[in-house]
Design a protein around this nucleic acid. Structure first.
Length: 583
DNA sequence: GCCGTTTTCGGCCCGACTGTTTTCAGTCG
């Protein structure tokens, strides 16, 4: 059982307990534990083997015992009992907008239905109005909620959310009186997937903003429209909400809306330590006589986030770090990393040309890369066994090498081209070309595209075998995941990273917003182990090259600096590294 | 259920918005 399965189990428990009406803090504890497992970076089973489960944040005695039971038996008596009490199917109702645990519980208890289909029929038949606290509007809201569920498939990839949010922001900035507009929430923290789009606007007068926002093109429904907050749904089911704050409190508002929740809990605590209560509006002096957070004569307003952090005695923390993964402590100790930036990237070590499945010739790709400030690129056209991509035979490679020589002459020192290959790690763990041939390439990037559903041991061994091949320099998109649809291979990532740290092989952060693989958590673990990271676009076209932005976002979330990423090194240093690897 | 340079007990997330309400409960972020 891996971390995600454990986390899913605890999330289910939290949902069922909530419907049951258990005290909210108990359900929060299960959710916190689930989140913590997802961000752990190592398998919980390792903590388990060492008897250190309770060292995982948010895991105490009770949850540690449950993890122990799950890992030893694959089952959980507590959950089985709970499911008998509260039908598991009800948990899926919670995904319906406008339905929360209270109403789910109430509807189930009064009408005795458990399936989403029955809920829909009941709503259509008008059986929900008349239930306590529900009227015709609630019924319609539930029906619309069920309909929107089928339209939207959960969270959307960052690569879709980000441009969409930017276009909304551009339109809001045109509204008269708008001083600033910024993304917030997981979008601003650059998580790989985003639920709803959160946008924050600074303006004295909110009415014009709300008017513009609810009248954006392609808005299919206005879900709510108030003085400070409005939310909308687009035709494709994507939802966005906007908050408007006066400019003088934009800093606290943006900090608050950016989250994460856990980061903000710590921020509020730091404020309290200084006798201040922090809200999205301002800091207020805590009244010492009552101990309550109100009744202050003097409010502190912050127009910028820098002021917010300064007020609690911290340097500004980049949004990508705000996950309560040690950033507050690092900021306190003045040990925040100087995060990598887009401009630091000087090399792109995975891209494809018309030699395999790319859309442009090598010359066109090289020129497009140079235009974007790249000094070194590697053509990693696919290897022979990946037939659908037009993979190259060794004979093809000879011809490709000759063409590279020719265009290199044409390009001069504008950009350096490396002759490389994305070599398939085959199902048996062998590579697609013999060692002698691999040794002749400038760079070898090995990755998996097939048989990703092999059992954990087998697929893990496969990658480790590639890592131990002395000719392999980079492992490309290690898990093979596709966002949001396909989970990656069931890898023992700790074992893989240990092997990589022994051999010095670099691990890729594939910058395609549909991959972002390694993810932030494992990339951070890789850094801890001293493994070099390579951020590559995997570009098949010119537009793909601009996706490197998302790769940098993952790297920033992983606390990486430019020294950790081989693509930021000088050409000399990069070539020296390759040479030391036998190239 | 977790957690503790105040604490092993008593805090934890609170405010805007909506709908069904005559003063409030539930949802959501």
């Amino acid at each position: 059982m891996n971390n995600k399965q454990l986390a899913d189990t605890f999330t289910l428990i939290a949902n069922l307990l909530e419907i049951k009406g258990e005290i909210i803090y108990k359900t929060l504890a299960y959710r916190k534990a689930a989140e913590s497992l997802m961000g752990l970076g190592r398998d919980a089973s390792e903590f388990w083997k060492e008897g250190k489960l309770e060292e995982i944040p948010g895991v105490g005695k009770a949850i540690a015992e449950k993890i122990d039971e799950l890992l030893s038996t694959g089952k959980l008596e507590f959950l089985e009992k709970l499911k008998k009490e509260i039908p598991e199917e009800l948990a899926s109702w919670l995904a319906v907008p406008s339905l929360g645990p209270k109403k789910v519980g109430m509807i189930w208890k009064t009408l005795g239905i458990t399936s989403l289909a029955d809920l829909e029929s009941a709503a259509k038949a008008g059986k929900l109005r008349g239930l306590p606290g529900m009227g015709a509007k609630s019924e319609t809201a539930i029906l619309e909620g069920i309909a929107s569920l089928s339209r939207r498939s959960g969270r959307m990839p960052l690569g879709r959310a980000y441009p969409l949010a930017q276009s909304i922001i551009a339109q809001l900035k045109k509204v008269k009186g708008v001083v600033a507009a910024e993304p917030a929430g997981s979008l601003r923290r650059m998580r790989s997937t985003v639920g709803d789009l959160d946008i924050l606007v600074a303006a004295k007068d909110s009415a014009a903003v709300m008017e513009a926002f609810t009248n954006l093109p392609n808005v299919s429904r206005v879900l709510g429209k108030g003085e400070f907050k409005s939310s909308i749904e687009f035709g494709d089911g994507v939802r966005a909400q906007v908050w408007v704050h006066p400019p003088q409190e934009f800093g606290t508002a943006l900090q608050y809306a950016t989250g994460s929740k856990d980061h903000n809990v710590k921020m509020r605590q730091l404020a309290l330590d200084k006798g201040l209560s922090l809200s999205d509006h301002s800091f207020k002096k805590v009244n010492p006589s009552t101990g309550s957070g109100r009744a202050a004569e003097k409010e502190i307003f912050c127009a910028t986030e820098e002021d917010v952090y300064k007020t609690v005695g911290l340097p500004w923390i980049p949004p990508e770090l705000r996950e309560d993964r040690g950033e507050i402590e690092a900021a306190k100790a003045n040990k925040l990393p100087k995060l990598i930036e887009l401009k630091d990237l000087k090399a792109d070590l995975q891209m494809h040309s018309t030699w395999s499945d790319g859309k442009l010739s090598m010359l066109e790709m090289a020129r497009a890369s140079a235009k974007r400030g790249m000094k070194v690129i590697a053509f990693t056209d696919h290897s022979a066994s990946l037939g659908v991509t037009g993979g190259l035979t060794m004979e093809d490679h000879k011809k490709q090498a000759a063409e590279i020589k020719k265009i290199q002459k044409e390009l001069g020192d504008e950009i350096l081209i490396l002759h490389a290959s994305e070599v398939e790690i085959k199902a048996d763990g062998s590579l697609d070309y013999p060692d002698e041939f691999l040794a002749s390439l400038d760079l070898v990037l090995a990755s998996m595209h097939t048989s990703l559903r092999q059992p954990r041991d087998k697929v893990t061994d496969r990658v480790i075998k590639a890592i131990r091949n002395p000719h392999v320099d980079i492992i490309g998109h290690p898990t093979g995941r596709l966002i949001p649809d396909r989970e990656g291979a069931d890898l023992d990532m700790e074992a893989i990273l240990q092997a990589a740290s022994e051999t010095g092989v670099a691990m890729e952060i594939n910058a395609s917003p549909y991959r972002l693989d390694l993810d932030d958590v494992y990339a951070r673990r890789a850094k801890e182990l001293g493994i070099p990271i390579s951020i590559n676009t995997d570009a098949h076209s010119e537009e793909d090259m601009d996706m490197r932005f998302y790769g940098v976002a993952v790297a920033r979330r992983a606390w990486l600096t430019k020294n950790d990423v081989i693509n930021c090194w000088s050409t000399d240093k990069l070539l020296r590294w390759l040479k030391n690897r036998g190239k």
